[in-house]
Write a protein that binds this DNA or RNA. Sequence first.
DNA 1: TTTTATATTTGCAATGATTTCAGAAATGAA
DNA 2: TTCATTTCTGAAATCATTGCAAATATAAAA
Lengths: 139, 139
Amino acid sequence: MIARSELKKELINAGIRPSVQRLAIYEYVKSHHTHPTADVVYDALRDVLGSLSLTTVYNTLKLFVDAGLVQLLTIDDTFRCFDGDTSSHAHFRCDSCGRIVDLKIKSDFLAMVDGLGGFEIKEAQLYLKGICPICKRKN
Amino acid sequence: MIARSELKKELINAGIRPSVQRLAIYEYVKSHHTHPTADVVYDALRDVLGSLSLTTVYNTLKLFVDAGLVQLLTIDDTFRCFDGDTSSHAHFRCDSCGRIVDLKIKSDFLAMVDGLGGFEIKEAQLYLKGICPICKRKN
DNA sequence: TTTTATATTTGCAATGATTTCAGAAATGAA
DNA sequence: TTCATTTCTGAAATCATTGCAAATATAAAA
């Protein structure tokens, strides 16, 4: 759990004015590692904050993604979800329960890709899909 | 370029009846390595075939994906595109020109991911984004 | 070949996540 | 406080994708 004042500084450093809504949304994605959709964030915060618009959540998350503070995941092709952890890691999506799991990845994994000379890589996403250990045990 | 009769066999082997539309769509995605969207396939084939419905293109591509004959890519979060090459390879999307490029990847690249024991991996997608060599040279 | 059943295609309407937009509210500076 | 700027809001619009029911094509049976 990161302190609110620390999160505030991060927003300011990124050139983003830390409004009440923005700070709440930022705190949510940084403290919940559940890869929430915009809608999930909206449902979780609408009661905490007096009022909140779903549009604000969409706009704010897009702002964070563009600033590099949050990752946008498209591992499930039917919706977008967000990850406050911007460090390099892989994602696994269980076909059975839908859960998205973080997996550690070696820092030099791009060495496995051939012919990258001349390319400028700004972002890398490794998406794995299949059956998670919990669902496998159930069968 | 693969022969039409060969493509026909592949569909039959997958349990898919090779109708005129299906064969045309299958031939398109297997011979064009441009990662087309459903709409692009539709526009390319509507004139060749007498008539064609966009719904048919969506349904057919989904059929191919479910049968494992074609890959679904979600590297661009605003639309889905398709890849007739189902072999293991990475994809790069240029932020500048939007082009999606195939990149070779070492077959054992999953060794770079920690803690995969217990997981059953059915699909892996490595998406890279940034600036391609052609766009870099232009600047 | 004709009939019948089944599979496929079609076009339009519906869906639903996301975005746009214009006005309202909040914020910061003077 | 006043003014200017930024941010938030909610409703309406967008657009890729899907659902559905009718039309067509294909295969099997008679």
